[in-house]
Design a protein around this nucleic acid. Structure first.
Lengths: 223, 223, 223, 223
DNA sequence: AATGAATGAGCCTTCATTCAT
DNA sequence: GATGAATGAAGGCTCATTCAT
């Protein structure tokens, strides 16, 4: 009958090699950036042949796109923008959750951190892969943020103040990851890992709420 | 009979070539970053020989260090951290000036912008040149900032809240430059050049003052 | 209880795959030549596995030899050197038929054309496969040609003039195929496909007969 | 004074290396064709570094274009289409000279032969370089040929018969070079080098004149 | 003082082939 | 009987650097 007659090699092997390549590539791209990362190094770390990248992914750029996609998916799956907050929760609570998720997403240890590292580089030297990421993940996340900031300000989403406040919030979050090289040199006593994010998230949320409410109080007296 | 006249070369010419190289290098490093910048491109733009970099600066890295030093000097000369503010001005005013200078320093057009661009890359991929920059420029600037933020908070400089507030302020400023690739894609209507900095500076200063004062009000009732 | 039934494979399937490979290989070799043709492309077009060529034919070179053999067989089957001419026809008529067959064999559309294309390349860059082709097909065809040219000249087959005239005849035929890249650029109005061969064949036959007869008239006054 | 003050390396050295590269490239391209020729082999034969081609010519394709240009220039300089024939010579004499030049140009020994070899390959697998060659050399030569063939036929240049006769002439010439692999196998007694061209040229001219005159006699009774 | 020529190392990619299944 | 996975060799090209002049 030969019901289980398998032809060819073991597909599990393929997946295994692919996975190892993807993981190695994630590490190398995060460390060196797209351009300076070398296929050699990636294959070496994955214990694969130099031609393996071409075989499994076509070329370096497609491999990178896959790494970015994977890392983004994993990062947002583990830390959704509004992690553990009900859809009808008050906007202040959403803001708190947003900031906490954002920071953890950037600093979570393990292969996930890559997302932060890769994004940092993507900001400084955007690749073609950025476009898709923006459309799929960043835009929706930005809309969430704009939404509850507008709710706190009690004004239309497209009000300039909403945008400015969002810039301030995201700016404070991104800073810790993007400038970690300098922060850790200037303030060696300031830890910069996932564990250290809770108090920072607390600070950013409080600081930002005060900033937003300052606008709400003085310029939209409707309330 | 000038003893130094024995060669036919004009020392002024040497300086001129050096200067042109430095300027070209500034542009190329800002555009492409240290690693991806090529000596060829720099020499080409400077109208100099391919070996000129090695001749005048030793190697690519030393040239980069020189460029960073130059660009930092120019940027801080044009926009000192407390531009146009008296030493005994109230700390709130200093904060305003600091933010404004910071943003203009990052976004000023011309060869100066380079500083912002080069710093962005330096954050993501620090080079050996960062150390000197940190000691000479960043540290003093940070001390200024910490000083008047502590003054507003009315608490010791080494209080954790002071540091956190400083992070928030600088984070908001740096954000616009570092994430400009994404901001301009998400909000095409948001201009991101020197001219657009004034309202942003105004926002950041106000937002931050509200954040800081929130701490001052609730946690240090001494006043 | 067929002893050969122990494997589940269908021998007809094997032949089918072989045939598809052969056909795809013919196309690819004709388009790209032996060296530049890739096993990948051949297998892809045949809808077969990348390793199929090695499995069915051993290696790329053996596959090529098979293609050449096939294509030659088909081409000469469809266009024998003396197509539609009786064995005892006058040599002038044989010459006409020879030229016409030759041109059609080179330019016939469909998988047959391959023969012309492959032969063109084989001339410029002979492979090991040329030897067999020469012995099996070219030599007999040349002998035919030498025979009736000698008959027209009314002199021994090994007379130098016979050889020269044969060179002239074949040269005129081959030219249209071999130099088609240049002809079509120099004379865009000159069609170069099977349909256009009839008038060209007519010309070559007439032109050549005049040339041959010039020798016959002036140098062999035996007639 | 320093009137002879040379800066930099010896320009003669550059030319020397360039020349060696060009010569080696000519040989390799002639032997292997553009695609299969390797920069490595060329540099090796020229005793130059692997990067020398890039330094002196930019890339493989530009080197090839240069080789083609050089070889064409040399070949046509040594064997102009109407070598040693007065402008007002009778067209029959021009035809004779044309054929002789054509054959010698293809078969001349030394680095010149390359022209024939390279052209053979260019016919089978045209490269971008063909276009320029066609415009600069082939077209004018074709116009020459068309001109005096029309004169012999005593009919307009654009008459179809003129074109056909030119095809026949060039076809006979090209044949010896293009099909030399097969000719030398079929007729080992037939020498195929520059020395052997004279009788062949004589044959082709006579054969062709007879062919042309056959048209002139029977179809344009004006004479 | 300055440079044109040259180089060695390294990068990404492609290819025919092999091998375990 | 047939194939998916993997590989070693090689190819074109780029780059920072060196060296003789």
């Amino acid at each position: 009958m030969n019901l289980k007659l398998k032809t060819g090699s073991d597909p599990a092997l393929r997946d295994e090699t692919r996975r190892r390549l993807l993981e190695a590539a994630g590490a190398v791209f995060a460390e060196a950036g797209f351009r300076h990362a070398t296929v050699r190094e990636i294959c070496h770390r994955a214990g694969a042949n130099l031609a393996a990248v071409n075989y499994h992914f076509g070329d370096k750029e497609s491999l990178y796109a896959e790494v970015l996609r994977e890392s983004q998916r994993a990062a947002f799956e583990k830390y959704p923008p509004l992690l553990a907050v009900a859809a009808d929760a008050p906007p202040e609570e959403k803001l708190r959750a947003f900031v906490r998720s954002f920071l953890l997403r950037l600093f979570d240890d393990g292969p996930i951190t890559r997302f932060g590292r890769i994004m940092s580089r993507e900001m400084v030297e955007p690749t073609a892969a950025l476009k898709g990421l923006l459309k799929e993940r960043i835009r929706p996340m930005a809309d969430d943020l704009l939404g509850f900031v507008a709710a706190i300000l009690d004004c239309p989403v497209n009000d300039k103040r909403v945008r400015h406040c969002c810039f301030s919030i995201v700016g404070q979050c991104v800073f810790f990851h993007h400038c970690r090289a300098m922060i850790s040199r200037l303030f060696p006593e300031q830890p910069l890992d996932a564990a250290a994010m809770e108090p920072l998230a607390e600070h950013i949320a409080r600081f930002s709420l005060a900033g937003i409410k300052d606008y709400a109080r003085k310029t939209s007296p409707r309330r």
